[in-house]
Simulated assay, not measured.
Amino acid sequence: MRIDAHQHFWIFNAERDAWITDEMAAIQRNFLPTDLAPQLKENGIDAVVAVQASQSPEETQFLIDLSVMYAMIKGVVGWVDLQADDIADQLAHYKQFPIVKGFRHVIEGEEDPDFLSRPSFLRGITALTAYDYTYDLLIRPRHYESTLACVAANPAQRFVLDHMAKPNIRAKEFEEWAAFIEKLAAFPNVHCKVSALVTEADWENWTLDDFKPYIHHAIACFGKERVMFGTDWPVCLVAATYAEVMAVAEHSLEGFTNDERQAFWGANAVNFYNL
């Protein structure tokens, strides 16, 4: 199967979704599985992992409900308050929904550089491990050190880095990001999504070659068995079509065997999320 390991659905709410600014007007509307289905068919994608876009229990239930109606959704990465005193009870509740594979917090929106090192947050990660849930890392450079500390403290937890840690491709910043990727990839329990890169580049003037050094470095560090493809649809639409996002990844897979290509386009996501 070919899997899009990272995409979103929402019923647009201007107040809740304030992160979708006016310069992103193209995605200031509803996006549901019926909007995505034609893109999957045209681009040969069989199934998707739906990832939370807002931070509430209602968001997680919304994605669960969609998965009941649309077979394309093979996994859900929801939101839960990892710092809650009753986190174990909340995770036990979600065990009745096998479609829920893991959780994510929008760390990139947290100004505290040490958010991932908070005792309350680390207690939540310990609970995720106990209940066999994955955790998606969505971070910015200010979180590099606490990310490494969090991962080091939780060797049994399955982590996946969203969007290759969002390197600043537009400004061609590389060295600090590359050093972080090398350090993070040294932990064998961390995987990486090759996703959302177009929105970190010049939205109007990017070229396929802009992304190659970043993708090549991530693959060199994580290895071909720990990288997976995702589009970040519909966010990607501010800078590229679904097909163009696939082309960005395809352009950097030189030397992949057929088995390695199948792993990148699907099998690695199936294995990581237990789809």
Rank of each mutant, 00 (worst) to 15 (best):
N13K: 12
S146W: 09
Y133S: 10
I87R: 14
E260I: 07
D89Y: 03
H105L: 03
Q262F: 10
R29G: 09
V160G: 03
D112R: 03
L82R: 12
F12P: 13
E204W: 06
T34D: 15
D112N: 12
W203Q: 03
I73P: 06
I20H: 08
R16F: 00
E145G: 01
D4A: 05
T207V: 06
I169W: 00
A50N: 12
A185T: 09
L40C: 00
K166I: 07
A84Q: 14
Q157K: 02
D89A: 05
S54W: 11
A92K: 10
D35K: 11
A153M: 07
I64K: 08
T134Y: 05
F31N: 02
Q90N: 02
E176P: 06
A5C: 13
D89I: 13
V76G: 09
K193E: 05
E173G: 12
F187I: 07
A130V: 13
D132F: 01
L66V: 09
Q55P: 00
F62I: 04
W19C: 09
E225G: 13
T21Q: 04
H217C: 04
A37L: 15
L63Y: 09
G109A: 05
L275V: 14
A84E: 14
T129W: 01
N168A: 13
L184T: 12
N168C: 04
M72V: 13
N274H: 15
N154I: 08
A243H: 04
